[in-house]
Nucleic acid binder design. Structure first.
Lengths: 179, 179
DNA sequence: ATATGTGAATAGGTTCACAGCC
DNA sequence: GGCTGTGAACCTATTCACATAT
């Protein structure tokens, strides 16, 4: 399959074809009229825009249940991300799951994050310490945080935070399924 | 603290006060002019609207890394949700973590979901089987699905799906932190 | 004096309709 | 003929400004 239409792409993405075309058009002309989009080229150009054309290093902070599960998750590499290191207040606490990434003590975070030059972090620490850890991350060069703590982080405006709040997702479902 | 202002609430929610007031107003008049919102009453009325004033039972399907982590997560109960049962193709596979919820064989899903009368499900199965499992869930009365598989589920329009896609969250960060 | 509730104004996002190009 | 790219139309969401209530 060499080319693909906006209609086919929209189908799998769950959006309307016009939406998809307009979105792509914000980044330039990706397609060919009468033909569609050249798959390889489209893929490359999207990766370029997202910044995932090279492998992006990421650190994870807070190796509890969720942190450990994310460290084992094999779905990131395919999309161009690699969790290169994890940090925890108790790096030696027994963890049953075998993971490939090293777990360091939180104390080592500043030096190691700087050394690695990592710009993205996954935050899976308890809510009580999330803001404090976020501050440390930002101070040491992190520019994007994927936050799993159920609090609104306060960060400088040049830092990007994406929140994943599982309770809110369920509340949302709960609301919409009500009879 | 008996009452709270839209300004204080907006601060912790990370939105503007007018936004918060307008949103609440869609569900009725919750506050008192000159005073603010009565905390206990507001809390109760929001829970009523969300349908979380009673404990909501939820099932989880797919007890892999992520599923297991979510089963151990203690943040749901506080918000009114309880994962009452989990299902997996291999319920007996060794899992190091001690969890309180029973894990049943997928074969038992239809009968048990019906019996329990559960209306919400968390879907943490591999992408290849996600659609098939979703179909089974819907056939047996599930009306809301929290989907962690990186695919767009096709469901009847009365069924609500919320997607959590970790790779997309990282891609989003990656895009915005680019220099 | 203080803080909500809300119409009006503004901004942002989606869809339509079709011109433009292969 | 087929499919993209895009201005215009439409729709939805946010913010403003202030009337209203305590």
């Amino acid at each position: 399959m060499q080319t693909v239409s906006s209609e086919a792409l929209a189908k799998v993405a769950g959006v309307k074809p016009t939406q998809l075309r307009k979105d792509l058009a914000y980044f330039g002309t990706f397609g060919t009229r009468g033909l569609g989009y050249h798959v390889a080229e489209l893929s490359r150009r999207i990766a370029d825009e997202l910044g995932t054309s090279r492998l992006q290093p990421v650190v994870l902070v807070g190796v509890g249940n969720l942190g450990l599960a994310l460290l084992s998750y094999r779905g990131f590499e395919k999309e161009g991300f690699e969790i290169v290191a994890a940090f925890d207040v108790d790096p030696a606490r027994p963890r049953d799951k075998a993971i490939t990434q090293p777990i360091f003590d939180m104390k080592e975070l500043p030096a190691r994050v700087r050394k690695l030059g990592v710009r993205m972090a996954v935050l899976t620490v308890p809510a009580e310490v999330a803001q404090e850890v976020a501050n440390t991350l930002v101070e040491n060069g992190i520019a994007g945080i994927l936050n799993f703590s159920p609090i609104v982080l306060s960060v400088p405006e040049e830092v990007m935070v994406n929140n994943v709040n599982l309770a809110i997702e369920l509340e949302n479902l709960s609301y919409f399924i009500q009879v």
